[in-house]
């Protein structure tokens, strides 16, 4: 599966469009991480636990999108966009969408 966030795949030709595919996940952080983050909020700096959590969730959202594209028979997803929204206190939704295509 080839993924890009531009309209084409350089060096390849698009032969078929399958329309939009998307994947999303809503994640909450667990209490242990919250306590560590609370401490980090005093001294500042990177919250590594949160970075990893969000990366894992985003990977899962992308896997869901790729699965959907595979079901269509696509072998690439172009024009991918990411969106993040906090749906409620302590939970965020990670959403990824793009256009499924077949390239040769």
């Amino acid at each position: 599966m080839i993924l890009t966030n531009i309209e084409t795949i350089p060096g390849k030709e698009i032969v078929e469009h399958f329309g939009i595919v998307s994947g999303s996940t809503v994640r909450a952080k667990h209490i242990g991480r919250d306590i560590m983050a609370g401490l980090k909020n005093i001294v500042g700096g990177e919250l590594k636990g949160y970075t990893e959590l969000l990366q894992d969730s985003r990977r899962q959202a992308m896997e869901r999108m790729i699965k959907q594209a595979e079901e269509f028979g696509a072998n690439a997803v172009i024009n991918i966009r990411f969106a993040t929204s906090s749906v409620t206190q302590g939970a965020s939704e990670l959403f990824v969408y793009g256009t499924a295509v077949r390239v040769v």
Partner: peptide, 15 residues
């Protein structure tokens, strides 16, 4: 080769 790459970071402000 053309592929999607991404990087992310969560950062906190100090007191």
């Amino acid at each position: 080769d053309a592929r999607l790459v991404h990087g992310s970071v969560v950062i906190s402000i100090d007191y």
